[in-house]
Design a protein around this nucleic acid. Structure first.
Lengths: 223, 223
DNA sequence: AGGACGCTGGAACGGCGTTCCAGCCGGAGG
DNA sequence: CCTCCGGCTGGAACGCCGTTCCAGCGTCCT
């Protein structure tokens, strides 16, 4: 039976930038940042490393494309029938959840190749700032502050929770951390020791959202 | 003249963890993150790569030690004779300036090896939060919010300004960015186009400090 | 039918982090 | 004084990485 009856699947579906970026996101999600390798990517796509370079220029562009593929949908929520405050909150939580689900994304925003993606986030935030009625001269500063807070704090949070070994649940991790803090030097780390117990009951996501609301309140005049 | 008259300089001052970390910081500052190589480090220390491993366990520990060497002095300012608000502001600007002077530090805080350093920052912030008179149940949340803002936003700012090619000055860079934004698609990037001109006159450091003040005001009750 | 070309994928290169180990060198013990 | 020993050194080597190169496949145009 050497004859192939099914001619339509020639060898496989052809390579494409989309398929490559998709496989890269998968690899980053499952094996982590160090697991994204041109060789591993080639194996998953059943090809050689060289073929990938026909579609992307190198690893930097690949990481940028993977970042964009994750972040852009997360900030593309529908705005209609929402107050600007609600829209900003939704957008912020979209970024937060995307960073949380794909811990490698936060690190990308500390590197140099993120610019187009960040500009998209800035644009969406800026439009809501306009809708808030912020006067034109203050719009740039207001949008910058919000964007820096959202991307910066969400990234910082993702870096913190990434320390959790995969498989352990959040409660166990917080328990272990609280225990470690309680054992710190009482002189040097008095404050951390004292608040160690609060670790168990706090909720990063809620506190992140509260921070967004606080900045929005500050922007709109605080009156 | 094959005889060595100077016997005192045997070969060099001996290797030590301190000297290695110092050279690593130098290398990171001058050549950037990709310039920190065990081979380059060995050459600068006039030794071989193997010798370095007697003093540090690997590159991860080396990066963590370099980060600590830069950040800890930056947050160790003298607190006496300051209001808590002033102390927090000074601390925040210390982190901001350290991240700005050593752009590779911000990226470290998105990775997994920063924990001891971050805890030191948290401790210092927490003590000032206590001094502000924040009630005990809210201290943890308040200190977390401040720390996340300070580290997150300072890191984000450092990543943005790092895009500047070394040698170009800030005004030229802002000019070029403003020009690029003005050329964006009017439909997709209406807001960014509109505020492009504001880029030239804004000051990241001042706006960062204003954000810190805003959060402090929110923490202390906002009355 | 034949040529051209987009696309493939395996081989190869230089450089990386890391490991290994032969040997140096200063001080403790005879 | 010599000898031995162990902390410390530094160069060689290993495996893996990103990237480049190129012979050849398949498809479409002429």
């Amino acid at each position: 039976m050497t004859t192939r009856t099914r001619r339509t699947e020639r060898r496989q579906e052809p390579l494409s930038r989309e398929r490559i970026v998709g496989a890269a996101v998968d690899l980053l999600d499952t094996v982590g940042e160090s697991g994204l390798t041109f060789r591993a990517l080639a194996e998953r796509l059943e090809t050689g490393p060289g073929a990938i370079y026909w579609h992307v220029t190198g690893k930097a562009e690949l990481l940028a494309a993977a970042t964009e593929a994750v972040v852009v949908p997360a900030v593309a929520a529908d705005d209609t029938d929402r107050t600007p405050q609600e829209a900003i909150r939704t957008l912020a939580l979209g970024v937060f959840d995307a960073f949380d689900a794909h811990p490698w994304v936060g690190a990308q925003f500390s590197r140099a190749t993120w610019r187009p993606t960040l500009l998209r986030v800035f644009e969406r935030i800026g439009r809501q700032v306009q809708a808030l009625g912020v006067p034109e001269p203050a719009q740039f500063t207001a949008a910058s502050a919000l964007m820096n807070y959202i991307v910066g704090v969400a990234g910082q949070n993702a870096a913190t929770t990434r320390a959790v070994a995969p498989g352990t649940n959040r409660a166990d991790f917080l328990d272990a951390t609280a225990h470690a803090w309680s054992a710190l030097d009482p002189g040097e780390f008095a404050f951390a020791r004292g608040v160690a117990g609060r670790l168990r009951e706090h909720d990063d996501r809620t506190e992140f959202a509260a921070g967004v609301d606080l900045i929005v309140a500050g922007i709109t005049g605080g009156t």
